[in-house]
Amino acid sequence: MGFYIFSYFCAVIFLAAVACRVYRQLTLPVHVRWELYPVWHEKPVRSAYGGSYMEEPDWWTRPYEPSAGNAMKYMAPEILLLRGLLAENKRLWLVSFPFHLGLYLMLATTVLLLMEAAFMLVAPSPADFGGMLRTGIGWLIVALGWIGLITGLIGALGLLYRRLTDADLKRYATPADYFNLLFILAFFLAAISAAFSDPFFDGAKAYLAGLLTAGTFMSACEPGQSFSGALTILLASLLAAYIPLTHMSHMFMKYFLYHQVKWDDEPNRPGNAVEAAVLRNLHYRPSWSAKHVEADGSKSWKDIASSAPKETK
């Protein structure tokens, strides 16, 4: 039961950390525009060369129509294949891509394992419930699980090697960077070691069935049967809790970096939500202390911006 409690605890930390990070971003004030072109939710004819709607005469007379579809066409290969890194830093991509692919496939495998665990709660065998779909999921778990473990291991080793041998990377690496890589490497090593003795991931399926039922389901795994299996459970749980606490949260925070900064080209129009947010911001009272700012704690941004500085130096 201790393993289950530990996994639940880590899952709670994961969810809380993700929620905190996302909530913080969602509650920050609307900022000034700072987009960077190409903005890929533009029309394809323009985004192909990095153009914007501001290339149109009298652009403000036309509706603002960002296309989520166009953005997705760019983002899908960016997320899945790390296209930007491939284009700009191929040497690093050669190790970073398998690393990220390994993590993505571990995530996908976990989702499939959860689906299989849910099936198991209804009936132990595909012949009794789930049929072809469940059989397919079973094979996908094996395929994605193994590919993910192998690519992840290669990637983690490769990234560690690069951090240790590339002078430019090494100079800026911190103990935390090495720890993160070693942590993930340890997870892949433990998981591969467990998978050698359980190549169809039956133990993982049973563990997740146990997780779904607080260990009460009759097919639930009794964790700790093998050292590598137990280690995999501990490291996977810890990793899930740890990632959103670090800069590795870029896995999901990249959404904000792209959609709320790099591609945030929404114009401020009379009466729209942006204008309402700006009006709120103009009431903030800054306390910058340089003389020319003339902030005394009572003046708002609006007051200060509509005044001229008395200071001449």
Binding site: R24, Q25, L28, P29, V30, H31, V32, W34, L85, E88, N89, L92, S96, D168, L169, Y172, A173, D177, H247, S249, H250, M253, K254, F256, L257, Q260, V261, N281, Y284, R285, P286, S287, W288, W301
Partner: peptide, 24 residues
């Protein structure tokens, strides 16, 4: 602080927290 830097707070926090130091 949002009172002092609402203009660039989100851009700054995101860039401060998520660099992987990949040197690209």
């Amino acid at each position: 602080e949002k009172e002092n830097n609402w203009t660039f707070l989100q851009q700054l926090t995101l860039s401060m927290e998520h660099c992987a130091r990949c040197q690209t």
